[in-house]
Design a protein around this nucleic acid. Structure first.
Length: 197
DNA sequence: CATCTGATGGTCT
DNA sequence: GACCATCAGATGA
């Protein structure tokens, strides 16, 4: 018999830029409220720690961003514009402050539940965007600081075509100096990738 | 299609 | 009191 892997998320302690493209194609599963909803990750955004001006960890360790300084596999949720929750998967070793923002999913499980939570049934409006997908999966601020394997987990899905991986290097909003490294990863031509380019 | 703007609340200064 | 890793609805072309 095979014993369950005690640490199936060990690979998330790698650098956020390494982890980000590996998250594409995986299914993000939520069991919030005891109801299963899920979607395939099609767009992510990598953030570094203290040296990345765009990162919430840039200004150091505060209570809000404390989960970002946990070891890879932790969940960091923040409230955006007073309206939307956004989910990050923390990466890197403890103390680094790295994370990957989940920007878009292709909905796979519980579309009806998502439609109820979102007050719309338009498939593209369910999980195409960080605020939308969090609402669809029932992800609240209370999940910040939890770990994958609790309410949220990752599950492998089928492979995607090699040419589907796309990378953007355009400068982030708020950064004077253009990002000199790739930071946004998405599945090319996937209809659920968010509109922002 | 593109661009603009109001909503709204936690966090930090 | 300022600042947002966003979204929906409105308006104009």
């Amino acid at each position: 018999m095979t014993k369950p892997d005690p640490s199936p998320y060990q690979w998330l302690t790698a650098d956020s830029l390494t982890v980000a493209p590996l998250l594409l194609g995986l299914e993000l599963v939520s069991n919030a409220g005891g109801i299963e909803t899920a979607g395939r990750i099609v767009e992510v955004e990598a953030y570094h720690g203290r040296e990345d001006p765009a990162s919430h960890a840039y200004r150091g360790h505060t209570s809000r961003v404390a989960p970002m300084f946990e070891a890879g596999g932790a969940i960091y949720v923040y409230l955006s514009y007073g309206v939307h929750n956004c989910v990050n998967i923390v990466t890197g070793p403890a103390g680094e402050g790295q994370a990957v923002l989940i920007r878009a999913l292709e909905p796979t499980i519980g579309l009806n539940v998502m439609a109820t939570r979102r007050h719309t049934a338009g498939p593209r409006l369910l999980t195409s965007g960080p605020g939308r997908l969090s609402q669809s999966l029932g992800i609240g601020l209370d999940l910040s600081g939890s770990r994958l394997g609790e309410t949220l987990s990752l599950r492998p899905t089928g492979p995607y075509p090699a040419q589907a991986l796309a990378v953007a290097t355009s400068p982030r909003i708020g950064i004077t100096k253009a990002a000199d490294y790739p930071w946004r990863f998405y599945l090319r031509d996937n209809p659920y990738v968010s509109g922002r380019r």
